[in-house]
Design a protein around this nucleic acid. Structure first.
Lengths: 217, 217
DNA sequence: TACCAAAGTAACCAATCGGTGCAAAGGGGT
DNA sequence: ACCCCTTTGCACCGATTGGTTACTTTGGTA
């Protein structure tokens, strides 16, 4: 079971690399918090998954709450960073909106942890986000995104005027977010597999249609 | 502070009443599970809030998980029971739909625990609901509700045909549910109080408009 | 009124949790 | 080669958790 005497690296190379360890802890924490919620997540489980010692978590992140806060902030930075890459200004308003709805849907699929983390934060009455100025800053541009599309659509004469961009933003998120966060109870209540390929294709089509009907004349 | 000697009930009446105790436990459990989630809820806190002994909880409900399951099932029974009282068949399709959207919104306001419980259940991948046949049964009629309205609207020539009632059902829930469940993070991201009277009034108007735009020709 | 199942209580338990003290090992700067 | 701070590991702690054992009290009824 033990390493042979001639083996220079007993069983694990165990290189000193603070950034790598921090990164592994954050990845593991994101998974654990997403799967079990803030209260349900176990620090020992995070350490095990990260292939790190529990002591490291407290060394780098001070407490379970602070670790959660860091994970959550990073999640918001990630989604806003992805949105920046969309370059919606080069598209006509209608296509830009379609693309945004599509993006939101795809982001939730590819990053299911995001929804779960946000749910946990709302159960905690957003007490971790309240003190995070950086998240507020990156959110501002995001709100402006839809506003710009909306205004362009109005001047081009294809969108209604007077639509509150915040309400539209919320609705774009809602129609996708709700579908995923309630996929388990939903599949039982409606007695169909909401996550099958065909069901997903049907839903994204319905969502795009819904958003366009809100804004179009 | 203490009762007078002539008082026939010294300080606590402490009457033997199994049903009343069960009810108090269920009420307290609903509050505690809603506030702190399935994992975050404390059995001791439930016992304290219910003014009952912790042993009683295990006597009547076997385990924390079974208690949660009972609370959750009751929550579904309650919302479906409320929906039955709407009598949407007596209204014309457009009014019926408006009323249903309004009802959904108001139910979430008056029963904020419902949303939180459903969120907890989805975090648990609906493992408590899976085995509950009664919930499936009461859900069937609920799905049929929108289907009937939709069909009436089509024959009256005011609704589009070919709309999936399940998609519409999901969307009706989504636009209200998302707004409430994400009220804390949302108020930070959008930098406005989403729960103020005026914000709520604006949102419900937007939601009704959204749903009508989906179905109307 | 004596009985006894049901209702209620208090003290307790093993397991687990988030969090620490402390010492050893690694590796860049000099 | 040496230093010395950072990184890592292990064993441990007090508090809390869901759950239980053993007991007393209540009240309908034969």
């Amino acid at each position: 079971m033990s390493a042979q005497p001639s083996d220079p690296q007993p069983s694990r190379p165990r290189i000193r690399d603070a950034e790598a360890t921090k990164g592994r802890i954050l990845d593991a924490a994101k998974k654990e918090f997403a799967r079990n919620g803030l209260e349900g997540a176990r620090v020992d489980a995070i350490a095990l998954e990260a292939n790190a010692n529990k002591r490291m978590i407290y060394h780098y992140f001070e407490s379970k709450e602070k670790l959660f806060q860091t994970v959550l902030e990073n999640a918001y930075f990630d989604i806003r960073e992805s949105e920046k890459k969309l370059e919606l200004d080069s598209l006509d308003p209608r296509e830009a909106l379609e693309r945004l709805v599509h993006f939101t849907w795809n982001y939730y699929i590819q990053n299911p942890e995001f929804i779960s983390l946000v749910n946990s934060e709302n159960l905690a009455q957003a007490r971790h986000l309240k003190t995070s100025e950086p998240v507020k800053i990156v959110s501002r541009r995001f709100v402006g995104l839809v506003d710009t599309i909306l205004k362009r659509g109005v001047t081009e004469g294809i969108f209604r005027s007077g639509i509150d961009p915040v309400q539209l933003n919320i609705t774009i998120a809602a129609v996708s977010y709700y579908y995923f966060t309630n996929q388990y109870t939903g599949s039982i209540i409606f007695e169909r597999d909401l996550m099958s390929e065909s069901a997903q294709a049907e839903r994204i089509r319905f969502n795009i249609d819904t958003i366009l009907r809100i804004v179009c004349l």
